[in-house]
């Protein structure tokens, strides 16, 4: 135990703010990042909206998580994958996103998932 580094992928599938899933998901990612495992995040479906630039939750009177997204890099969570078709279906492009990501085709994401030791959906 401990010697082997596990690949843990967090899959964000839900839109921001409508439910707490992506918010608490990010809290989980930040904790796990302290454990020196290979952490990645993949955004698919409505989950891609979580990365949209210029989100302002002040009128919703909720905290939001834009700041958290910004510090992922500081926590060494650098592998952020986004499903190309999910972006396209929602009229988004890479330029609309708040952080640097790697946009992949769905089969490539599937392949990555198959390589993981743990997958946690949010």
């Amino acid at each position: 135990m401990g010697e082997e580094i596990k690949k843990i992928m967090h899959v964000v599938r839900t839109a921001p703010h409508g439910t707490i899933y992506p918010y608490e998901g990010l809290e989980m990612v930040l904790i796990m990042a302290a454990y020196e495992q290979e952490i990645s995040m993949t955004f698919i479906g409505d989950g891609v909206y979580c990365l949209k630039k210029d989100q302002d939750t002040s009128k919703l009177a909720i905290k939001g998580f834009m700041k958290t997204l910004g510090v992922l890099e500081d926590y060494d969570v650098e592998k952020l994958f986004v499903d190309r078709i999910s972006l396209e279906e929602r009229g988004l492009t890479e330029e609309d996103l708040y952080v640097a990501v790697e946009v992949l085709e769905s089969p490539a994401i599937g392949k990555l998932m198959a390589q993981q030791d743990v997958i946690i959906p949010h």
């Binding site: 596990k6 843990i8 989980m28 796990m32 454990y35 030791d117 743990v118 997958i119 946690i120 959906p121």
Partner: peptide
């Protein structure tokens, strides 16, 4: 804490959600 979930995720053969 969530640290314990991380330990579990590392230790078990399958984490099922």
């Amino acid at each position: 804490g969530l640290g314990q979930l991380t330990d579990i995720a590392i230790r078990v053969d399958r984490l099922v959600t």
